[in-house]
C-alpha cells in the first residue's frame, strides 16, 4: 500500500560558487542596523507530496528527481527533508 510523504527540497549554491545575491543582501543588512551577519547564501525551497511504499522509497524517488531535474549538480547542492504526510 502506498503512503504519502511531505517533502521539502532545499536547493543551495555549492560551496565555492560565488553567490552575488547573498553578497548583496549581506552588504545591505548593516544599513538596517543588523551588524555581524555573515555567510548569507540564497537558495530556493521546493515543497511537495510524494506517494511511495515507504520512507526509503520516497527518499530514493526524491533523490532521483533532484539529480535529474530539480537541481543542477554543477552549481547546486540539495538537502532533502521528508516525513509522513500530516
Amino acid at each position: 500500500m502506498s503512503k504519502e510523504f511531505d517533502v521539502i527540497v532545499e536547493v543551495s549554491l555549492r560551496e565555492g560558487i560565488a553567490d552575488p545575491e547573498g553578497l548583496t543582501i549581506e552588504r545591505a543588512l548593516p544599513a538596517l542596523g543588523f551588524n555581524g551577519v555573515s555567510d548569507v547564501r540564497v537558495g530556493k525551497s521546493l515543497r511537495f507530496v510524494v506517494e511511495a511504499s515507504d520512507e526509503r522509497d520516497a527518499r530514493h524517488q526524491v533523490e532521483s528527481m533532484c539529480e535529474r531535474f530539480l537541481a543542477n549538480p554543477v552549481i547546486e547542492d540539495v538537502e532533502i527533508t521528508l516525513g509522513p504526510l500530516t
Partner: peptide, 17 residues
C-alpha cells in the same frame, strides 16, 4: 545545451547581478 548535457558546465547569474 548545458542543461541537456550536450556541453559541460552551467550558466549562472552575472557577477554584480
Amino acid at each position: 545545451l548545458t542543461e541537456a548535457q550536450l556541453l559541460p558546465g552551467a550558466l549562472y547569474k552575472n557577477q554584480g547581478l
